[in-house]
Nucleic acid binder design. Structure first.
Lengths: 213, 213, 213, 213
DNA sequence: GATTAAGCGAGACGGTACGTCACGTCTTCCG
DNA sequence: CGGAAGACGTGACGTACCGTCTCGCTTAATC
């Protein structure tokens, strides 16, 4: 698709939420906004990010291109917004207190998600955002920030209660646990099935639990 | 950019050049081929894969678009061919017989490469190939097949001489070692520096060496 | 600019203001009206009728588009209103009693006006009104009706006192005298200078003064 | 429609005619060119110049917008080209040797033409070209140059054989004869019918024939 | 003084055309 | 007969005005 370079008005900025009293002019149509996002999500499901065009979103949603461009900087931003918290809500970080089993479960669920159609599309978005300062930032913020923070908390807790090595670099540990799943996607290797995910979890966990000795 | 769907005549396979009995008519111009690849590599260095267009390659190289399309299925294929064995030659798999230190060294060199400009472009290519059967296959073949095989051999050897766990799933081990590097790229996280790479290697290796007990 | 097709509520007719008992509610803002016309005239001076947009008038004048559309049917009407009696007041019909010299003087002054920047813009308005029933009527009414009537009176007087041929078709005579000036404008021929205008007057007058014989 | 400001490659330039041997690449499609002009003429007949859009021409003709823009600078140029020698061929300058009757006939035929639908559209084109250097030049060249030259020759001949005044400014005389017809168009006055045209001819000719005295 | 109408600025909206760009195909001529 | 030159149809891009539509504020005339 190609990313856009302008930066109109920070689509997901908190400004539009913090409005104290109603602003002057005609208010932003929430219906339009919703129609765009719904349509865009459907289009992504149907065609992936290739074949995703603003023109088509406008056609299907009945929202004009001008309006779309007023709210988002371009197709990439719309797509990211449309898939919104797909990942976050599809694969919530569940903390039961048992870090090892929590991480194992999360690896399995994440592998499943990336093997699903929506997961493949997310991968395309990751791809499209690559090397684009704005794109990458947007993705990080929308898709990963919360999950990463939650997972980090989970690991910290594991470190505290002795389930995980105390000397662990938390960030690096996250990369180690989940990187392989994404790596396979981008290498065109079959995504991990449930058994594969379990095997990965077993292996990766050996790197972060305390040494038996 | 978008990938192409046709499949003309085995893009870049040397077979059509090495034909033993010269066919009638003007022979295929190796110069054209070379000019395209050189120009394309320069263009990728300059603009990345976004901003890489066949039109521009044709303009700069003096080779006609028709000729380019006769040899490659589209921009993606040209780019992959142009960057050729960038990775393979930039980060050769060196086997000294010491699997642990060999893998450590390789992780370090791979992280360095992906942090370099060419590495970022490779990441864009990985991204662009996502979800495209052909694209992914081409990438796997051009960029990863040999390296992966070599690394697998290295690991097998490590398993044989007891440096690595005998029950290791070799493929999964490769994902575990190198996945985190690529993962960071796609998440817009700072690529690993030398120290980070060393830390990653230490951590990951714990997962694949024999248990002390 | 393009012409509009709706016909809202008699733009600018003073009738709706002079209503005997003041209506309820906030009265029409004369300031807004004035600001629009002033701004519009400036914009026309600056860019001509091409490049004249309601959006820009609204932007510069601080009057909202909705208000403008409430008072005028569209850009064309605003422009015509803004240039108001430019022609009429710039080239008044002066009747001294000597029809021949009066017409000569008027031809000269009209040629000068159309050669001026404002004259060129008037020509654009004439152009834009072409073939649009409403547009043409508006122009005729705003720009030409009075002048034409005054000139007709002047000619009638000339016919009465023997300076002009008694069998003259007055309307046609007006077209003959002033048509050539406008004609040159639309043909992209240099507008007449003072000498040219004098020559035109001499020539045209031969057609409408009594035969010497 | 609005005029364009770029100046790509001089649409009607003689270059494309003077090509000695065939040029290298794929030749310009005469069919496309023809399809555009035919469609454009139909569209002008149907809607006038307002309501004439490149998009619609492209849609109806099956020729792509890109191709149209490669050959013409914009809608105005297409329209002018499409109506081509409408005027010239519709109202040819006929020279029988009798200047007075030739001019009379021509005035009548020109008045008829401008009263016809195509004539009204030509008037819109004249209008749209006003004040645009390029537009005016294009019109002059396409529509008026030949007619004006032919008419000038006709007048010169009349001057030579004594039918017309010897001291006549030929150019000005042309403006005098034909200006009134166009003037009425732009003033929204009913175009001249046959009788009116005859009356105009009688009157105007008095200005250019030798004085009886 | 409270109520009730307008008029108005602000500005979002659906629509439609603009002119540009890259894609991948094609036609023609030159070596 | 391979290849360059380059025109072509396709279809998306992002922008600009159009004329309409809420909103909430302001300003009288009426109650």
């Amino acid at each position: 698709m190609g990313l856009m370079t302008r930066t109109p008005q920070a689509p997901g900025s908190p400004a539009d939420v913090a409005a104290p009293g109603r602003r002057r002019g005609r208010p932003v149509s929430l219906e339009s906004r919703h129609a765009v996002l719904t349509t865009a999500a459907g289009l992504l499901d149907e065609r992936g990010f290739n074949g995703f065009t603003i023109d088509e979103v406008a056609r299907r949603s009945g929202v004009s291109k001008a309006t779309i461009y007023k709210h988002w900087a371009g197709g990439f931003d719309v797509a990211v917004d449309a898939y919104g918290d797909s990942v976050t809500s599809a694969v919530p970080v569940i903390a039961t207190g048992d870090a090892v089993s929590d991480l194992t479960s999360q690896i399995r669920r994440l592998a499943e998600f990336y093997a699903s159609p929506r997961g493949r599309v997310i991968a395309q978005l990751l791809a499209a955002g690559t090397g684009q300062e704005r794109g990458a930032a947007l993705l990080r913020e929308k898709f990963f920030a919360k999950r990463r923070a939650d997972t980090a908390a989970l690991i910290e807790q594991g470190k505290a209660n002795g389930q995980l090595r105390a000397d662990l670099d938390t960030d690096l540990a996250i990369d180690l646990l989940f990187g392989p799943i994404v790596f396979r996607l981008f290498n065109g290797i079959e995504p991990l099935d449930t058994d594969g995910a379990a095997a990965l979890a077993r292996m990766a966990l050996r790197a972060i639990v305390p040494s038996p000795g």
